[in-house]
Design a protein around this nucleic acid. Structure first.
Lengths: 187, 187
DNA sequence: GCAAGCCTAGACCAATCAGTCTAGCCCAGA
DNA sequence: TCTGGGCTAGACTGATTGGTCTAGGCTTGC
């Protein structure tokens, strides 16, 4: 399913999955390395600043995956509400596939750890990218610039908050209910 | 401002603040104890299971604070939209007071840590309590039972997600924009 | 004044942490 | 075939982790 072309990719991918499950501080380097079946030397060769560099690479990796999911939901959509609904259902499915436990890959990796300005800036940049991407799709589906950004922001917070609630409830049902709440919202 | 009647309360309060800032795994017992100016013996006397017991007490403490904020927002409200708007603004202010860094006290404490079923159950119970409380206020303001619950859930996820986005952006602006998105939503 | 027990106090422990360092594999170019 | 260097491999370190344990206040009932 997932091919790792390089040692560096394999480390970022493994770290991403583990950070999603237990958060930045909850995962030790030894755990990452044993999962990736790689020695410590490789890690510090590819990521000179160690764990923090690895976390940022892992978050970037996860962000790319999410952008793909957004595109997959919106490209075939006939209307914005259509794409939004598909996106929530795709995320609900993903949540279930991840064992109904994992958190948002970005906030779990970059916002649950120490007060690190670089982490904060990267998370902001990643979230902005997501919202921008959703807004772009909204515009393509005939929504005006300003409203598109508002709707995208609304969708983002509902997804982020809904995912958190789904974790607590150990059920993706609430994610599937979200489209009902957001549908036809003018702004 | 905050009086601690007992050693136990002081520990729970201190732990709650630190967990909000750095997450469950990000805070060491030594840090909690030095902040509370209490020895380790006291902690293990009052919380037999140690850190995990303390985290659950801290989360319960924080939950009570949030319920008070919800009541403060809705009790004087003339309409649901009124109360909802006040709640978002109160939370935005709180976010700023906390240095624009802290996360949700519940998810940071109970959902960022290890796969602990007791944590998960407690977080679910706490979130349900919040949503129930909001729905109760909605009903008092003339909204029907089913719609009240939907609106409360919608408000909750927007608050949770908005708070996360606010952290990334280091700004509470997005929280203050949320009422505009949710206003008059039929369900 | 004395004893009993709740609670404070902090030394101590094994385990684990992130990070450093050296040794050597292995492939590329000459 | 030899050599240089990108990369793997993992032993090692000092700091810190959560948790245990014993010793001694300090208050309460007599």
């Amino acid at each position: 399913m997932t091919k790792h072309h390089s040692t560096k990719d394999k480390l970022a991918w493994t770290a991403s999955k583990l950070f999603q499950e237990k958060g930045y501080e909850g995962v030790g380097l030894s755990e990452i390395l044993s999962n990736a079946k790689l020695p410590k030397g490789s890690l510090y060769h590819h990521f000179q600043k160690g764990k923090s560099d690895l976390a940022m690479a892992a978050a970037s990796y996860a962000s790319r995956e999410m952008l793909r999911i957004i595109d997959d939901a919106f490209v075939p959509a006939k209307t914005y509400d259509d794409g939004m609904t598909t996106l929530f259902f795709k995320c609900a499915k993903l949540f279930d596939l991840m064992g109904k436990w994992n958190g948002c890959p970005i906030s779990g990796t970059l916002l649950s750890g120490p007060r690190n300005p670089a982490f904060r800036d990267l998370s902001n940049q990643i979230f902005e990218t997501w919202i921008k991407r959703i807004a772009d799709h909204a515009q393509k589906l005939g929504i005006g610039t300003a409203e598109a950004h508002d709707r995208a922001t609304h969708l983002f917070v509902a997804l982020q908050g809904g995912w958190t609630l789904a974790r607590a409830q150990q059920s993706s049902d609430v994610l599937r209910q979200m489209p009902k709440f957001l549908k036809g919202t003018p702004a």
